[in-house]
Design a protein around this nucleic acid. Sequence first.
DNA 1: TTTGCGGTTAACAAGG
DNA 2: CCTTGTTAACCGCAAA
Length: 432
Amino acid sequence: MKQVMEKQEAMQQRFLETIEKREQDRMIREEAWKRQEMARLTREHEIMAQERAISASRDAAIIAFLQKITGQTIQFPPTVVIPAAPPPQTTPPPPPQPTQQQKQQHPPHSTEIVRHQPTTNPNVVVAAVPEQQHPPQEMISGSGSFDSTSSRWPKQEVLALIKLRSGLESRYQEAGPKGPLWEEISTGMQRMGYNRSSKRCKEKWENINKYFKKVKESNKKRPEDAKTCPYFHQLDALYRKKMVGGSSSSTSSFGHQSKQEDSMAIDPSPAPTNLQVIMPPPSQAQPSQSHISEAENKNNNNKSGTGGNMEEQQQSSSKEGYFQEGNSGASTASALKKPEDIMKELIEQHHHHHHQQHQQLVTSDYDKLEEPDSDNLDQDEEDEYDDDEDEDEEESKMAYKIQFQRQNAAGAANSSKGGGNAAANSFLAMVQ
DNA sequence: TTTGCGGTTAACAAGG
DNA sequence: CCTTGTTAACCGCAAA
């Protein structure tokens, strides 16, 4: 009897212990899950905000374009301006400081800050205001320090410029005057709080491309985590996309590859097809995958798994790929279409273009392609926006990887699509 | 003439 | 100090 009692007691003890252990495990798991969930939510929030910002700028661009084409102001329903739930980002929306730039210390040049472009009416500005509230964090170096104006472009600005230019270039394929383009870019920069004249924008663009090319040509091994030239990844992705995107489309209306080869690879402007890749679709495509915590992202960024492979792959291919493959046939119907036509389509679709974005993204192949290894792909475009100094390198690296992946996928999707849609799609995608 | 592009130079910053 | 990397700005040329 006693034995039985003892045995039972022991069993009960074990049972209790087990239960306790289970409970503990469960708690731990729950905790982890909560953390993940929190991270995911935060992520999604950011993505949403980003999305809004992107669409805002898109709309601004579209409106500007429409106005340019139609020659009249277009009253767009303010619905475009999404009330924008306050993004969790830490940077408070600063007053778009216009003052700092005023004291450009180059009076001789009379750097006319393109303040009131006739081409872009206040609508545009208004529509796009909610977009990049990220301040030009240039005044970091103290209040009085002009440094912002020190003609040295902060990283943010460069990235913004690249983005803008990538987004707008499509409209200026047809050898028209490029003046308005830069004016527009300058205006776009101003919307973001950067005061750069069109001339400087153009110059900067040329310079970064020049330097990029120079570095690429001098086969110097650039440590890919180089802290300098933060825009290299962006440019890299840009050009690569152009290449791949171009090669994916067989029809070529670009006869002048021979001489242009280099510049084709370098200058993003002449590739219409890749617009969709150049302006990668907003990140809302993958909001659900953001369950990976920041920490994990960081890890992945550093070196691991798919990311590392991607990186190496790119690295290896970059040398040969860059300037040799410039002969991207790169023209889909969008290149053949007149902007008016495109715009007609666009106008029809404009009100739904958000949904279309989604559909496009969801239905397109790249989504599927991206999925398997996209553990850390949830954050992409936003990198280009709200990268804070600290995480910039990694994040831009991520963007770089992501964009590369997308380009492949997008290329595939593109090639699989009918030519008819391609135009609208590509333009749409560009506008995205 | 305009535009794109390559070359160049001076300045700046970081590292040795 | 010098060297190296990066950048802004200017110049000149060639093509459209």
